[in-house]
Amino acid sequence: MATDIKSMSLSGRKIDVSEKEMTFKEKMYVFAIAKGMGITLRHFFKPKVTIMYPEQKREFSPVYRGRHILMRDENGAERCTACGLCALACPAEAITMTSAERKKGEENLYREEKYASVYEINMLRCIFCGLCEEACPKEAIFLTEDMVSSDFKREGFIYGKDKLVMPLEDKIH
């Protein structure tokens, strides 16, 4: 069966474009404009959907991925052992760290013998995918429900340990 390329439809959903002339009524546009104005007037009285941000906050879903936190264990020691797996897993290459060896007497500060003396996440690079959280063998890094706050300078978005490590008072585990 000879099929004309014009009548062929691979998806079976082909719709012919109609090129019919507009009628006089349509050409006047007045009725179309009146209809459009009816629609905008209806929206004028509709309830507004805006969330008034600082006073009113949108509820996040339980799996929301916000800014990171470096966890402490139940004794208040940092869990991170600077293995670098999070940095390796990170698709945006947002994480850098420097490792150091735990000294005598610091057992209450760092859980493992090796720890991160510098740990930085560049929040401008981070895409909040949560892969670092999945990669971590020590359950040291988590993404919280907080949002990254705005800043005037780019440097302010490179979060060091001062911002990332969970405050001592909050230790939960």
Partner: peptide
């Protein structure tokens, strides 16, 4: 205000 109201904003 009118623009906002017609676009469902406050």
């Amino acid at each position: 205000k009118v623009a906002a109201f017609m676009q469902d904003r406050p």
